[in-house]
Amino acid sequence: MSKVSFIQEEMAQRNEKAVIGFWIYLMTDCVLFASLFATYAVLHKNTYGGPGSKDIFNLPYVLVETLILLTSSFSAGIATYSAYLYKKAQTVIFLIITIVLGLTFLIMELSEFSHLIRIGDSFRRSGFLSSYFALVGTHGMHILFGLIALSVLVCQIMIKGLNRNVLRRINLISMFWHFLDVVWIFIFTIVYLMGVIK
C-alpha cells in the first residue's frame, strides 16, 4: 500500500465515525419533522373560517421552488464528488452554486410567507395556517442554517484547502443538504399537492 492510499484509508475510517454521528442526528431530526407533519395532518382542515389549503397555494411557484432545491441538492453532491477528486476550484464553484440556489429557494419561501402575512393569512389566522407555517418554516430554518454552514465551508476551503477535516465537513454538509431535499419531497407532496386536490 502506498503512502497516499494509507492516508486515504485512515481518513475513511475517521470519516466513518463522523458519518455515524451525523446520521443519528439526521434520524432524530426526522422525528422533529414527523411530529410537525402529524400536527399538520391533524390540523389541516381546521381553517376557522379562514382560507383553506386550496385558496393559498400557488402550485407553479412551489414547483419552481422544488426544482431549485433539487438542483441545489444535486450540485452539493457534485461538490462532494469534486472534493474527493481534490479539484479545489470545481468544489468551490459547485458549493457556491448550491448556496445561490438555496438562497433563491429561501427567498422564494420567505416572499410566499410575507405575502400570506400581508393579506392577513398569517400563522395567527387558523390552526391550519399555524401548522403550515410551523412545518414549512422549520424546513426553511434548516435551509438557513445549512446556508450558513455552506458559506463557512467555502471560506474554509479557500483558506485551508482540501485537508481531511474540510473534506469530512463537505461530506457531512452535503448529507444534511440531501436530507433537507428528502424532507421537501414530503412537504411538496403532502402539504402542497394533496392540499390542492382536496
Partner: peptide, 19 residues
C-alpha cells in the same frame, strides 16, 4: 480496500441518475 471503505465509492453517475 479504499473502494470498499465507504468514502471513495461516490460516483458522479449515481448523482446524475438520481437527479
Amino acid at each position: 480496500e479504499i473502494n470498499n471503505s465507504g468514502l471513495f465509492e461516490i460516483k458522479f453517475k449515481s448523482y446524475l441518475i438520481g437527479f
